[in-house]
Structures are given as C-alpha cells and as structure tokens.
Amino acid sequence: MNSTLTNIIRCIIALLLQIFICNYIHLFGFLTPAIYLFALFLLPTDLPKSVQYLIAFAMGFVVDMFTHTLGVNAAASIILMFARPYISNLMNGRKTIEINDRPMPAHKDFRWMLGFTFLLTLIHQTAVVMLETFSFRHFGKTVLVIIGDTILTVIVILSIDYLFYSQTKRA
C-alpha cells in the first residue's frame, strides 16, 4: 500500500515537473529533457505488465496533451516499457538475476545505472523524435536532436536518482 502510494505520488510529481518546467526548456533552441521518464524507470518490476503498459500510456498521453502531439509520447513510453526488462537483463549480464531491477544507486553500481538509463532514454527519444518529424529528410539533424535530448535527459534523471534514492531505506 505504501509502495503503491509512493509510486502514484512519484508519477504525479514527474508529470508536474515535465509539464510545468521541462516543456519550457529549449536548450540550444531544440533540446528538451524528458524528465517524466524517471518515474517510469522506477516502476516496480513485480507490477503486472499490463498495468505497467497502462501507466506508461497514461503518462505519455498527459504529456502529449500539453505538447499538442497526441500519441507520440504515449507510443514511445509503451515501447520503453516493452524494452525495459530486456535492457535490464542486458545490463545484468552473467550475474544472477536480481528481483529488484530498478535503477537505484543503493542497489546498483554506476555503470548499470548509466547503461540502463541511457539505452532506455535513447529508445524513447528515438521514438518521440522520429514520430514527430515523420520523415527521413534532414536525417543528420534528427539524429543530433535524438542524441542531444538523450544526453540531457540522462544527466537530469541520474542526478535525481542520486539525489533522492541513495539511501537504502527508501523503496
């Protein structure tokens, strides 16, 4: 119960941050961090997968409503949710499979955190930017936007993780 409430509050805070602050950031004119992803990364892995998908869709949808790109962020978030178990398996490598595969500095080392966040953000941003531009013309610029957005988002999300989830006691 406590964990559920924590997750709900985290999702709402992430959405508020995204809608009221990050959507107005346009670094170098075109880089906008997708901060709401940190709530998706931190969703409990033992949650039923269909519920995970629904949460991802709902969050993406709310963000889309405020950026007038209905469906883009929602679709990208669902793809992210689909890829999440595969990426965490990839990062675990040959190590024994752990139950808690969430990016928390208390349980994981920095390499795991960085790889997990970076790969998933890259997938998400690729989906978002490609769906938004919907064209392979100016492909160089599109790739530049994807990579720039990804790096910015990774920095922001890792900072949040290390600031608020370093202690063991928080779940």
């Binding site: 469906g71 669902i78 919907f134």
Partner: peptide
C-alpha cells in the same frame, strides 16, 4: 495478456498521431 494490452495501446497511439498531427 500484457502483449495484447501493449499492442492495443500502441495502435491507439498511432490512431491519435494520425488524427492530431497534421504533418504526419
């Protein structure tokens, strides 16, 4: 079941994209 949920939601997303974004 979760795969079906994901597929349905994705299709819904693409329908929304097709309806809302004039450029695409």
């Amino acid at each position: 079941f979760h795969h079906f949920v994901a597929a349905v939601l994705l299709i819904l997303c693409f329908v929304l994209i097709g309806h809302s974004m004039s450029y695409s």
